[in-house]
Simulated scan of single mutants.
Amino acid sequence: MQIRATTVLPAERRAVTLHTADDLRLVGELALPEGRDPVATLVCLHPLPTAEGMMDSHVLRKAAFRLPALADVAVLRFNTRGTSSRHGTSEGEFGEGETERFDVAAAIEFAEFEGLPAPWLLGWSFGTELALKWGCDPEVAGAILLSPPLHRATDADLDTWGRSGKPLVALVPEFDDYLRPDEARRRFARVPQAEVIGVEGAKHLWVGEPYVRRVLNEVVERVAPKAAPLPQEWDGPYERDTFSTPA
Rank of each mutant, 00 (worst) to 15 (best):
residue 76 L to P: 02
residue 37 D to R: 15
residue 76 L to T: 03
residue 71 A to N: 08
residue 73 V to W: 05
residue 84 S to R: 14
residue 72 D to N: 15
residue 82 G to W: 02
residue 72 D to I: 00
residue 74 A to Q: 08
residue 66 R to G: 01
residue 72 D to C: 10
residue 61 R to L: 12
residue 68 P to W: 03
residue 69 A to C: 11
residue 82 G to V: 00
residue 107 A to K: 09
residue 77 R to W: 04
residue 52 E to A: 13
residue 52 E to S: 15
residue 46 H to L: 03
residue 110 F to Y: 15
residue 76 L to N: 03
residue 108 I to N: 08
residue 47 P to S: 09
residue 40 A to N: 03
residue 113 F to W: 10
residue 53 G to M: 06
residue 73 V to N: 08
residue 59 V to A: 12
residue 44 C to D: 06
residue 107 A to G: 13
residue 50 T to H: 14
residue 102 F to I: 02
residue 75 V to A: 06
residue 101 R to E: 06
residue 110 F to V: 00
residue 59 V to G: 01
residue 84 S to L: 03
residue 38 P to F: 06
residue 56 D to F: 03
residue 60 L to V: 00
residue 54 M to L: 02
residue 89 T to Q: 14
residue 99 T to G: 13
residue 103 D to G: 12
residue 56 D to K: 11
residue 70 L to N: 08
residue 79 N to L: 01
residue 74 A to Y: 08
residue 52 E to R: 15
residue 107 A to S: 12
residue 113 F to V: 02
residue 68 P to E: 04
residue 69 A to F: 07
residue 93 E to I: 11
residue 73 V to M: 11
residue 81 R to W: 07
residue 35 G to P: 04
residue 38 P to D: 03
residue 71 A to I: 00
residue 65 F to T: 01
residue 110 F to W: 13
residue 98 E to A: 14
residue 35 G to D: 05
residue 109 E to I: 01
residue 66 R to Y: 00
residue 82 G to Y: 04
residue 36 R to A: 13
residue 113 F to I: 00
residue 35 G to C: 09
residue 50 T to D: 10
residue 44 C to L: 04
residue 66 R to M: 02
residue 49 P to F: 04
residue 68 P to L: 01
residue 97 G to E: 04
residue 107 A to L: 10
residue 43 V to Y: 02
residue 79 N to K: 11
residue 110 F to H: 13
residue 90 S to N: 09
residue 56 D to L: 09
residue 87 H to G: 15
residue 73 V to F: 02
residue 79 N to Y: 07
residue 43 V to H: 07
residue 44 C to V: 06
residue 85 S to A: 08
residue 33 P to F: 02
residue 78 F to V: 00
